[in-house]
Nucleic acid binder design. Structure first.
Lengths: 137, 137
DNA sequence: TGTCTTTATCATGATAATATGATAAATTGA
DNA sequence: TCAATTTATCATATTATCATGATAAAGACA
């Protein structure tokens, strides 16, 4: 559903959100804890930082931390950096033009499904997921 | 959402379903009409035929046709040959073990979304899509 | 039989996603 | 200043997806 890269990004952000006030976290720690290749994760975190989702500091005691409160950070802001979420919302049959007025065979039925997926990413916050975890555990 | 290959397969089956009683259709015609690379489509159709979705005949007047009535052919049977639909239904965070009892942070919320997607493919038939087209055009 | 048309299959290439390894740049603190 | 630690970045390898080109095998029919 998500690319490997987007999934890694989401897991990394979630990891940071869980230990929100512990200061910065090193790539090495996260890579080990989440079992994500170190340099690969490094680039993902860097990209999240450039997008303003994370803040990074170099040198000793450096690392990454959330730059946005978890309750104001939507999954969309994380995932859309790596996957074309809006594209998949479009035509199931890949038509360049497909809308309510120029519908493909699947349009009306698919639209409802695609909107459900899109709403999930747009409306769910990182904090929502943390709460989800508490409830389920 | 779907891989290019699965999307091609779906479009090809839909094309055949639209002209259900016209006998067999050649790869060349479909490739041209659907703008899919000829040899690539050829392999996709062959795979659909091996799976029993299509029937193929060689030689002059050969080609492909549906092997199953459109109203008994679910999109899942087509798409699952090329994409791992069930896998994506699973954990958003990629956990090998993630269920109601061993839930990841996203589980309860994601489950509803994933079930919506899975139900679409499992319950929608090719005939449903053809009807959808009629209504919208 | 022999030729034409078609699917079936093999071999290869192109591109993007995923990942690894090495080095540069910044920061801290002795 | 200098060494240690960390992110930032570059170069390259690996793998899967998407696609092309050529040939083999099967069937129809004059």
């Amino acid at each position: 559903m998500l690319s490997q890269t987007a999934e890694y990004a989401l897991r990394a952000v979630l990891y940071l959100a869980e230990r929100a006030d512990d200061g910065t976290v090193r790539v090495g720690e996260m890579a080990q804890a989440l079992r994500i290749p170190h340099n690969y994760l490094s680039k993902i975190l860097h990209r999240l930082a450039r997008a303003g989702v994370l803040a990074s500091t170099r040198g000793k005691a450096g690392g990454f931390q959330l730059a946005v409160p978890a309750d104001r950070l939507r999954l969309y802001e994380i995932v859309a950096l790596f996957d074309r979420i809006d594209e998949r919302r479009r035509c199931l049959l890949g038509r360049p033009q497909c809308s309510d007025s120029t519908a493909c065979a699947a349009h009306s039925r698919w639209k409802q499904v695609a909107d459900t997926v899109a709403s999930f990413f747009r409306e769910t916050s990182v904090a929502d997921l943390l709460r989800g975890a508490e409830v389920s555990v």
